[in-house]
Design a protein around this nucleic acid. Structure first.
Lengths: 256, 256
DNA sequence: GGATAGCTTCTCACCATATGAGAAAAGGGG
DNA sequence: CCCCTTTTCTCATATGGTGAGAAGCTATCC
């Protein structure tokens, strides 16, 4: 705890115990777990008793300690996307400052892209707004998200057409869109070269959960005239996406 | 806390705060949340600071408090089935005592039924063992679990055939099995009348998660000769299934 | 711009309460 | 039956959590 933030010490200790017990999965005795994390047995037992009493652990049929209903209830309320948004924000601010461009994060919700983060120089000039929902077929973020959709969901999406042209370059033909999405999936990023607005160019990359689902996408937008070469922007963009994944799903080995 | 179990008071308080913050989803200020659960503001802020420092909450782009990565990490280790097993055990002991029969709980794992709980009078006489994996197509629990499988998974399962006959009544024809499963799905329970072993009769009912997935099934077994009428057993069985769901996924309004 | 209101951060004295060693009790094999 | 491990209990100690109040901070409104 390097900073002077006042924190409650006992909480951290108990939750370390909770994590240890859950990680163990009911294999070992409390005493064994306590030993493995250098915790006095008596204390460990009291902590576990607390966790059980509160419903965060339960005692299984053979006396094993397992994750409890209340913990589960807690997690039911969780929204993975919410977590990503939170974890991504500081990283995207960084990225935007680095590149001097607008950086955004969007998720796919009921056939549209929801813009959840927008930051960087010139952000107010760009027409998107945080919370805004836009069509998916004509933006970099949208195409990345569509590309990683399960087959069945993509089919369903394609049936929601037709896809009106917003600019001369908008992909309006479903078959052409499928081909484009295949390319996006293959190369791991999407390019939107003026498909949603004349002269707006952007690169987008997926943010992936450990299980492979793509839960969000981030993008760098710039006007085509002030454009930086993709070879320069792309690595930074993808690296940031990896960092977000680490932040959101990474192991819990916080420095303490 | 009616019993003399020594528990750690601060823990319960902090976790109440955690739940309140997560439930709120970043809508309200800490002060507002504190007010809603009758917690002094100063204390609430210190607790939230702790939760943030430990990584169980994160501060979002607009200052909202959202679920943190460490909490999410906890989720990854969780096994819903494990939770159900733990929550179900005491209830099934009760049920078995009530009915004076053998009661079991099973889950579907890689195309087979895993028996996870077995209790009641005569349990040792029945050939199943806790931890045992058996074919799904010929038991009450198995048929319930199969019936609630997503279409694609069921197809895949059917391809694993052929289904050897264990008794004269075993359903061996895939088409007949599909019809049987449709019936099971429709009536909400399964009957196994000597399909897995001669003279063994059982009724099985699903245990369903709030999102509709059937994660386990419970069954009452009895020899056909000492059989009680289904109309008598079934309501109790299904009621117990509901109780298990409540216990495993119910709201976290423990009496404290 | 000054004022009001609401949220957050800080300080501090009090004492509730978490701690951990040790002993006793309860299992559980061999 | 005895030994070894795990769990429960007891208790003195001082850690450290608490909450009131005040001061800082931002907005928003007139």
């Amino acid at each position: 705890m390097r900073k002077g933030v006042p924190t409650i010490a006992s909480f951290g200790r108990i939750l370390a115990m909770l994590e240890a017990v859950i990680a163990d999965g009911g294999q070992s005795s409390i005493a064994a777990i306590a030993r493995s994390i250098a915790m006095p047995v008596a204390t460990a037992h009291r902590q576990v008793a607390t966790l059980v009493a509160e419903g965060y652990l339960i005692v299984g049929p053979r006396g094993q300690h397992l994750a409890g209903p209340r913990l589960f209830g807690l997690l039911h309320r969780l929204d993975e996307k919410q977590i990503i948004v939170g974890c991504a924000a500081p990283l995207l601010h960084h990225l935007a400052a680095d590149l001097g461009t607008v950086v955004q994060l969007g998720t796919f919700d009921s056939d549209m892209v929801t813009y959840r983060i927008k930051t960087g120089e010139g952000a107010s000039a760009l027409f998107t707004r945080v919370g805004m929902q836009l069509e998916a077929y004509c933006s970099g973020i949208g195409k990345v998200l569509l590309a990683h959709l399960p087959e069945a969901q993509l089919r369903a999406y394609l049936d929601t057409g037709p896809f009106p042209a917003l600019t001369a370059r908008t992909i309006t033909d479903p078959e052409a869109l499928v081909a484009e999405l295949r390319l996006v999936l293959q190369q791991g990023f999407a390019v939107d070269d003026g498909e949603i607005a004349e002269g707006l160019y952007c690169l987008a990359a997926p943010v992936t959960a450990p299980d492979g689902r793509v839960l969000a996408a981030i993008s760098v937008s710039q006007m085509a005239d002030g454009m930086r070469p993709a070879e320069q922007v792309l690595p930074v963009l993808q690296q940031t996406a990896r960092k977000i994944e680490m932040a959101a799903f990474g192991t819990s080995n916080l420095p303490k």
